[in-house]
Structure formats: structure tokens, C-alpha cells
Amino acid sequence: MNAPDRYERFVVPEGVSKVSYERDTKIINAATFTVEREDHTIGNILRMQLHRDENVLFAGYKLPHPLQYKILIRIQTTSQSSPMQAYNQAINDLDKELDHLKNAFEVELARHNASQQREF
């Protein structure tokens, strides 16, 4: 009866921004990104990609509660970088990795199908 709509889990409500950014008030080069309507899928790939960045001193994410459909990503970097720069870099690198993966799969699928045809 009073259950929230199922789409609440993945549709960003009007007036709410998808990503918000909050600088840490005590630690330099540290910030928290709040990402609305995302979960472990995005949180974990971003965290692991951020760990590859040598200017990132800390990167972690949490899903505060299963019924709060948002994640928090916390980043601290060296003075050579900034949380925002590291965040953008991680997204760009993941995006390029997925481009590469898609291309590699399509080539492999064509190769596999061609080799299957030869067998018949």
C-alpha cells in the first residue's frame, strides 16, 4: 500500500543532482562525492580504478543503507593532483577500457564465428 515505487531505486528525483561534491574541511586534497541512484556496480569499479592512480592516497566507497539509493565516494590525493582530477581521470580511463573491451569482443566474435563456419 505505502511501498515506494520500484523505480525509486534508479530514477534520480527531480531537483536532485546526480553527483554532488563536498570538500573535506579538515584534510587538504580530500573530498566526498555523493552519487545518487548508483550502487556497487559503479562504486567498486571507480574505487579500484582510483587505486591505480599513484597520486591517490585514499579511495573508498560506501553504500550507506540498502534503502538509501546512493553511494559515497571518498578520495584523498597528493598535492600533485586533486580529488576532482582523480575522479575525472578514473572515469575517463574506465570509459576507454570499456571501449577497448567492446572492440576486442567484436573482433573476437567475428573471428570465432568465422572459425566455426570453416569447421562445417
Binding site: S17, L46, L98, F105, L109
Partner: peptide, 29 residues
């Protein structure tokens, strides 16, 4: 099944694109 993987990569790319910082968050900072 092969299309499922291709679509999954595409969806994941779209999701990443959606979490990019917007101009106003950068400006606010």
C-alpha cells in the same frame, strides 16, 4: 548471449557517463 555482453558494456559506459561531474559542481568548488 553475445549481444547481452555488448549491451552490458554499452550500459556500463552510459552509467559512467552519467556520473561525470557537471559544470555547476566544478564551478561551486
Amino acid at each position: 548471449a553475445s549481444q547481452l555482453l555488448i549491451n552490458a558494456i554499452e550500459i556500463l559506459k552510459q552509467k559512467l557517463d552519467a556520473v561525470r561531474l557537471s559544470a555547476d559542481t566544478v564551478e561551486a568548488d
